[in-house]
Design a binder for these strands. Structure first.
Lengths: 262, 262
DNA sequence: GAGGTCGTTCAGATATACTGAACGAATTTG
DNA sequence: CAAATTCGTTCAGTATATCTGAACGACCTC
C-alpha cells in the first residue's frame, strides 16, 4: 500500500484506496473506513464527500456505497473498443447456436481481461466483468502464447520480452503444437463436465488482440461442433476487425486503438 | 466545474476530472489535458502518474488511456447485486425465446441505469453499459411511475417526495392506466420498426427495484408473445428476488442491499 | 541537421489537506 | 423511558504536500 512512490502523488491515492475499500466491503461507514485504513475520521469524511460530489459514491442512510458511475465509465471504454464492436454479432450467434456461454477477452500486457459475456446457464463457471487473469492461469493463456509463437516463427519482429516461453519443456511444447494445428484449446474443469473452447483473436499482422471462448455443458449435443463453430466465429471477427482498422488507418492516422505492440 | 463546493475537497476532484477527460477523448497526452483543463503540465503529469500507479490509467506510447480497472470495479458492483443475480437466468431465456435484446435497469433515485444486456442483433438501439437516463426520457420511466402510483394507492407509506406526478394531466393518467392494466409498456421508436416491451421489477412491499425490457425487431413473429413472455420473466425474477431478501433478512439483518426506500 | 513539440524532472512558494476536539443526532443499554 | 454510547459532521490551526514555472532531454517535423 505504502509504495516507495517513485513519482509524486498523494491525496488522490488515498481517495482511490477508500473507493476500493468501499468496493470490497460493499458499503461502509465513516468510522469503519477510518479504523481500517488508519486515518482520521474527518479526513475520511472529506474524501467521501469529494467522491460523492463527483458521483462515484452514494451516501444513503449513513452508508457509503460505490455508485454505477464506475460501470458507466468502464462500459464506454468497452463499447468503444473495436474488438467488442467486431465480436458483438458473432458472440450472440455463437452463444445461440451452441447454447453455451461466450466470453470475450482483451489482451493487456501479460493478462487477459474479460470484457463481454453472452449467454448463461445455471452452474456455469462464473466470470466477472473486467476480471483480469494472468495468461499462465487461464485457458486463454496457452492459446495466446501458442499463437504468439507461431507469429514469431514467421518474423522475429520485436524482442522476446519477459516471458518464460523460451525455456518450456517438451510437454508444454507438444500441447502448443496441438493447439496450433487445431486452432483452439479445450479445457475440462475438474468437478464439472463443462467444456470450454478457447481461440485467439489476432490481427492480420499477427498481433494478438484477445481471445474468444465458448463454454458448453457436458451433456450438450455434438462435442466437436462447438469448436468448429468457434473457429468460424473467430474468422468472421478477425475479418471485421481488420477491415475496421483499415478504414481507420486510411481515414485518420492519429492514434491506433490500443496497439500495445511493445 | 468550479462548484461552490460546500464540503472540503480539492486534489481528488482534479484527478477524477482528468480521468473523465481521458474517458471522453478516449486517450490523450499531457499537454492536451493541460490545455483543456487549464492546468500546468507538471500538475497534470503528477496526477496522471498517480492514476497509472493506482491502475486506473495506462501509459503506452506517450498516450494515456483509462484502463479496464473501472470496468472491473463496476462489474463487481453489478455481479454482487441481487437484482442482477435474480434476473440473469431469465434474461438469457427471455432473449433466446423472443430472439430479441433484453436490458436490465436498476432504479437509482429518479434515474434508470442499464446494468446488463443479453442478446443482440444488428441495428438494434444501442444502450451503453451503465447508461443512466432520467425516468422522464426513457420508456422505463412511465412504467416505473405507473407502478409507483399503484403502490401508493395501497398505502400512503412515505411522503410523496419531489416528483411532479401529482399534477399530471388526464392524457398521461390514461396511459398509466393502460400500463397498469397490462403490466408492461410498449414503445415503437420513430425511424425503426423495433418494438420495446418494458416492465417493472418490484419487491413484495411495492418498492421498485428496476425494470426489465425486451426489444424485438419489427418483422419478428407474433407481436404479443414478447409482452406475455416478459411478464412471465418478471414474475420469476421477482420471486427469486424476494426469496433472496428473505434469506438475507433472517440471516444477517446488517445492511440491506441498496434499499433506497427514502 | 535545425526548429519545434512533447514529456519529464526539479526546487521553491503557496495553498490546502490532515489532525484533534467538540457538537448534535441517532441508536442501544440499563 | 432515560442514560450512555456510538456515529457522523463541523470547525479552526498547523504542517504538509500540491501547484507553479522554468529547464532539460527525447522525439518528430520541416
Amino acid at each position: 500500500m505504502a509504495e516507495p512512490s517513485p513519482n509524486r502523488v498523494g491525496t488522490t491515492e488515498k481517495s482511490l484506496t477508500i473507493l476500493e475499500l468501499l468496493q470490497q466491503e460493499d458499503g461502509a461507514g465513516v468510522t469503519e473506513v477510518a479504523t481500517t485504513l488508519e486515518m482520521s475520521k474527518s479526513t475520511v469524511h472529506s474524501h467521501l464527500s469529494t467522491l460523492v460530489d463527483c458521483g462515484y459514491v452514494t451516501h444513503h442512510d449513513r452508508q457509503y456505497h460505490v455508485s454505477t458511475k464506475l460501470l458507466r465509465l468502464g462500459g464506454r471504454l468497452r463499447d468503444q473498443s473495436p474488438l467488442y464492436q467486431a465480436a458483438r454479432i458473432e458472440m450472440k450467434s455463437l452463444a445461440a447456436e451452441t447454447d453455451g456461454v461466450v466470453h470475450l477477452f482483451l489482451k493487456e500486457e501479460s493478462d487477459a481481461t474479460m470484457i463481454a459475456q453472452e449467454g448463461y446457464y445455471p452452474g456455469v463457471r462464473e466470470r466477472h466483468l473486467g476480471e483480469r487473469t494472468p495468461l499462465s492461469e487461464s485457458i486463454v493463456g496457452p492459446v495466446m502464447l501458442a499463437e504468439r509463437e507461431r507469429s514469431d516463427d514467421g518474423e522475429p519482429d520485436d524482442a522476446p520480452e519477459e516471458d518464460d516461453v523460451s525455456q518450456v519443456d517438451d510437454d508444454v511444447r507438444d500441447r502448443f503444437d496441438r493447439i496450433r494445428r487445431r486452432g483452439y484449446a479445450v479445457e475440462t474443469r475438474s468437478g464439472s463436465s463443462d467444456r470450454t473452447f478457447a481461440g485467439v483473436l489476432s490481427r492480420q499482422d499477427g498481433t494478438v488482440m484477445g481471445a474468444l471462448t465458448v463454454t458448453v455443458p457436458g451433456d450438450s449435443g455434438s462435442p466437436l461442433s462447438a469448436g468448429d463453430r468457434l473457429l468460424e466465429a473467430i474468422e468472421r471477427v478477425e475479418l471485421s476487425l481488420t477491415s475496421w482498422y483499415d478504414s481507420q488507418a486510411t481515414f485518420s492516422p492519429k492514434h491506433s486503438w490500443h496497439v500495445h505492440s511493445n
